[in-house]
Amino acid sequence: MAISLRSDSAKGYALSMPAVVYVGFLVAVPLALMVAHSFWTQDYIDINRELTLENYRQAVDDPLIRLLLIRSVVIAGLVTGLTVLLAYPIAYFIAFKTQKKALWLILVTIPFWSSYLLRVFAWKLILGYNGVLNSGLLTVGLIDEPLSFILYNPNAVVLTLAHAWAPFAILPIYVSLQKIDPSLLEAATDLGNTAIERFLRVTLPLSIPGVIAASLIIFIPTVGDYVTPALVGGADGKMIANLIQVQFGAANDWPMGATLSIMAILVVAFVAAVFVISLRSAGRRIR
């Protein structure tokens, strides 16, 4: 008994048990409940527990739900692309072009630690019709009347989310760049590659895992973002999370809310899988 308790794996199981059980319970049980709810229906204030596909049929037939799901994926995709594109040069800069790596890493992560809600709120103030940007440009005399295309639409949502998620893109890309063996870069140079060829044929393919990680870390939560579309999205920038919240709040139709959540999870999983597979094969083809 004493010997088995001291064995390496027994200790590992015992120590990791609380965290694994806690997270496992809070992932599996709520998910099971959501799946169950999605096959039930709301009967005024009661829930009818007869299994039915009625919610899914309604959701698929509803043009508003289709629109919100597609818009959520498109906005999240744009945010992911923009964020990774803007972040890649910074990760490259920190990995290869500066001696003060630690300082830069802290500088890019600090804003992330200010409340997400407040950062979105700041963008609302900046982009407003009478907001910081418009009033600033008016005061300087660059524009004659306030720009109206910048708040309460999908552009504002993309911009705000791209700002909010920036550090999440930099760190994974930086880590994958940092791992590249310098002798590979030297070899490419010795074999006559120019700096640009070397980047395209060695550095970029080797950093694809970081790009994939960064994209997933941004894309998955962004599809289900609630705060940004609610604050800066207006009617045209609302996303699926806003509708899910209404189902669990004002509309009090949990089965429909659960159905939308499950559909959102499935759509996210599908898009993420297609993305990972295609980017991996693209990475292999360049090499």
Binding site: S16, A19, V20, V23, L26, V27, P30, L31, L33, M34, H37, L216, I217, I220, P221, T222, V223, G224, D225, Y226, A241, I244, Q245, F248, W254, G257, A258, S261, A264, I265, V268
Partner: peptide, 18 residues
Amino acid sequence: VMLPLVIPGIIVASSMLV
């Protein structure tokens, strides 16, 4: 254990409420 990082907030919130 790392999974909570990548589940959309609205899903965590609504399913925990349920």
